[in-house]
Design a protein around this nucleic acid. Sequence first.
DNA 1: CTGAAAGCGCTAACAC
DNA 2: GTGTTAGCGCTTTCAG
Lengths: 343, 343
Amino acid sequence: MAKRKAVSIKDIAKASGSSLTTVSLVLNSRDRRISQPTRQRVLDAVERLGYRPSRLAQALQSQRAGLLAVLVPELRHAFADVYFGELISAIHDEASEAGYKVLLEVAHPRFIDAGQHLEIFDRRFIDGMLCLGVTSFNSYLSAFEDGTRPMLLVNNYVDGLELNHVRCDYRAAGRIAAEHLLANGHRRVGLVRAALEVQTMVDLISGFTSAMAAAGAPIDQANIVDGLYTEDGGAAAAAELIRRQPDLTALLAGNDKMAIGAIAGLKAAGRRVPDDVSVIGCDDIHQGEFCDPPLTTVHTPIYDMGRSACRRLLEIIGSPTSTVREVHPVSLTVRKSVARQSS
Amino acid sequence: MAKRKAVSIKDIAKASGSSLTTVSLVLNSRDRRISQPTRQRVLDAVERLGYRPSRLAQALQSQRAGLLAVLVPELRHAFADVYFGELISAIHDEASEAGYKVLLEVAHPRFIDAGQHLEIFDRRFIDGMLCLGVTSFNSYLSAFEDGTRPMLLVNNYVDGLELNHVRCDYRAAGRIAAEHLLANGHRRVGLVRAALEVQTMVDLISGFTSAMAAAGAPIDQANIVDGLYTEDGGAAAAAELIRRQPDLTALLAGNDKMAIGAIAGLKAAGRRVPDDVSVIGCDDIHQGEFCDPPLTTVHTPIYDMGRSACRRLLEIIGSPTSTVREVHPVSLTVRKSVARQSS
DNA sequence: CTGAAAGCGCTAACAC
DNA sequence: GTGTTAGCGCTTTCAG
């Protein structure tokens, strides 16, 4: 029960009959060769007393916290989202391999308003930060433009702000989705979009609509509905689309959550998927594989991107002058939710 | 770009023409009244130079890291799970209100084997730890029985180990589910369970089966199938149950994920829910509200439990002698997935 | 090959 | 009221 009193390097020095320096040298195996016997005496003492160097003291000395923060948006339980969750897993995996630990932060208004997002840097609590799910509404981001605090946006960027980021090519994603629908004979298609303050969503929409238009099948504004990034929203949006334009034969949903919702919404409205209406999603989350029908979607390398983002952040920390703009390619994952349109 | 060189308390002392102590006293507003003019001079200097006390140095001095770790099991992307996610959100909210930050750790074999779960304590990196999703297979937990490192299990416990925990009453949950089914006339019921190394699952099963047995409607072992804690597993388990025992009129799933899967599985097998087969879940996750039919389930106060767990951990940190065994009551949330059995 | 001593940035007895 | 000083636990010149 009692708080085992911490054993410090001083205790080891005493116990092994050597000096602080010697102990430190042995432990950090600085090549300044310590004689084998001395080394052994130190190591024995360490073992015997169960000594563990204080990470705090080391951090203070080295001016490295060994900590990275992940900032997630303030959504209802942002951590309970598969997309963010997979990114966080990836970041955690990469960070721990590099000897860093991961701190969680939520972009609560009170967190931001108090300037905490800067404080954690300035108080030398963290070495760098990864921001997930940012939008152009997040005005606090501009404070990072001077590159003075190592920060990187994950799978997003903000038009007009010079911020490091690693993301997927959502414009290509939109184009690929359009090409797949066109190749299957679909020309009357709808789009379940989401928030326009998310730059990658804007890219997806523009990639999609311009590819459709280029093929002579432009998309009417009325056939673009907001699905709020949620399943329910996707369901409602799909229902609305089909109401506005009953002869739609296919639709793209801006992410898989909305696509899964859209499938449910279409079914509820009495349409068969994909026989009556085809659905294509974007992201390729795990769940898409198991819905009915299995979801055809544009694959984004979420996990790899997360790892890459973390790796790049560590590079920035190592060399503050470097700047990163990394764009990952996307691809098509064909399953069963898109059918050939014969009419 | 250049790394702004950190301004320290010493710089403030110099700039304000006072001593280190004075500055420290002013900043920590220790009541030793510093004269108003001096105080103002210090504050001005702080403002002007943009001084931020180093959290590292403070931590070293105070021997408090201000950090809590959350240890999640090594599942495929554990962070991408609504249940863990909600718990993490709750913990984060409570911790940040108390001025603590939250570190993420995953119970990878290599993390545990390296003894990292103890190291982060012994190297004074964290002040306490919260463990999610533990099972009796996690033998490393016994190292915490001596109470020497502040740790607490969240919504679980391990039979035979004396560990702090905050959890729900899953035995009662099983009983409540049984009572609700019985009250609706169901007597031929099945159970989609999950891993028996999870103590709360064992409790749920025992609460459920003994209540059914007590009512003269005992559950045959053949009517208990493993749903693996997943949607797919739940679907497969429900299909299997209905194959083994075609006249089942209801089933309990050990959590809502499996319940949602079970509904899909039953539908796929041609049964209507709840007209042919009723389904009751356990946990009350957000998604249950939106599935078809909306899920009747045993409500567990996940978020509140997470907050409470965190609060209790902080108490333990404050007073290492205290021991916590907190059990939260559960209740019934009636929606549409359980119907009256008329036959 | 090893030890003494300074310093990382901050706090808090203890003087003046 | 304010300053001096001694740590917190560690790393790292710089002498011996």
